[in-house]
């Protein structure tokens, strides 16, 4: 294991470690507040257009597969649990469980992104459901749209909301996977287990936030329009 000079536990601008942690946490929550407003713009326009074109949004939702949305939700909830356990392991100074939980979180996050791109989005592409690339619903998809009596251009609008909202969410997942990779390397080098767990906790806050965004995306995109 490579040995470097250990960084000081408390940076010189802080009085003590409690103040340092509070400052980091405050800064992270401010960042998450800006993220709430960033996604908020998308949710506000979603609400607006869903209220204007309810039939198109209902029809569009039926073009998505509930099984994908539900499994992503379960994967993200599992990854939030492993992330919380990773922070706890770091606090208690347990290096091996810390690395183990971080790797589990990374695997769940990577699986989410890979399943979404390789299967769900590729499937949508094959079914010609991607506005701007190839939007010409056929067969069963076209029947669903006709059943709801929704104009094709409005359904395309729903699909744009779906791709942009889940796409930006997936981008956040990719960033999270990158951060986790960094944490795993640093944890392997012996960091985070002697009171310096702050970085792990901050990445944890980010990860849980991305989980919360999906908690809203799942029912709003995959479950509307009456599945009965």
């Amino acid at each position: 294991m490579p040995e470097g000079p250990a960084p000081a536990l408390v940076a010189e601008q802080f009085d003590d470690i409690i103040q340092q942690r509070d400052a980091a946490s405050f800064g992270m929550w401010i960042f998450l507040a800006t993220e709430i407003l960033f996604f908020g713009g998308l949710f506000a326009s979603y609400a607006l257009y869903r209220s204007l074109y309810p039939a198109a949004f209902a029809a569009g939702s039926h073009l998505l597969k509930v099984a994908y949305g539900a499994s992503y939700t379960v994967m993200l909830i599992c990854s939030s649990l492993t992330m919380a356990m990773a922070v706890r392991s770091a606090q208690l100074g347990r290096r091996k469980p810390l690395i183990g939980f971080l790797v589990l979180t990374l695997l769940l996050g990577a699986a989410f992104v890979i399943i979404k791109l390789r299967w769900e989005w590729y499937g949508d592409y094959l079914e010609h459901l991607v506005p701007g690339v190839s939007f010409a619903p056929q067969g069963e998809a076209l029947e669903v749209i006709r059943r709801f009596g929704a104009p094709l251009s409005h359904v395309a609008l729903f699909m744009i909301f779906y791709f942009v909202m889940t796409g930006i969410h997936a981008l956040h997942m990719v960033v999270g996977v990158g951060l986790l990779t960094f944490l795993i390397i640093m944890a392997y080098r012996g960091r985070f287990v002697s009171g310096d767990f702050n970085t792990v906790e901050m990445v944890g806050l980010y990860w849980h936030f991305v989980d919360i965004v999906w908690i809203f995306l799942f029912p709003l995109l995959y479950l509307i329009g009456g599945r009965y």
Binding site: I77, A84, R88, G195, F197, P219
Partner: peptide, 30 residues
């Protein structure tokens, strides 16, 4: 000062169970 506030694992596991139950509920209710 060294460990911060350590939450018992039980709290995390109960939160996890509640989240899974609510996911099943929201899917079923649709």
């Amino acid at each position: 000062s060294l460990t911060g506030h350590v939450v018992p694992s039980r709290v995390y596991i109960l939160t996890f169970v509640a989240l899974i139950v609510l996911t099943v509920l929201t899917t079923g209710v649709a």
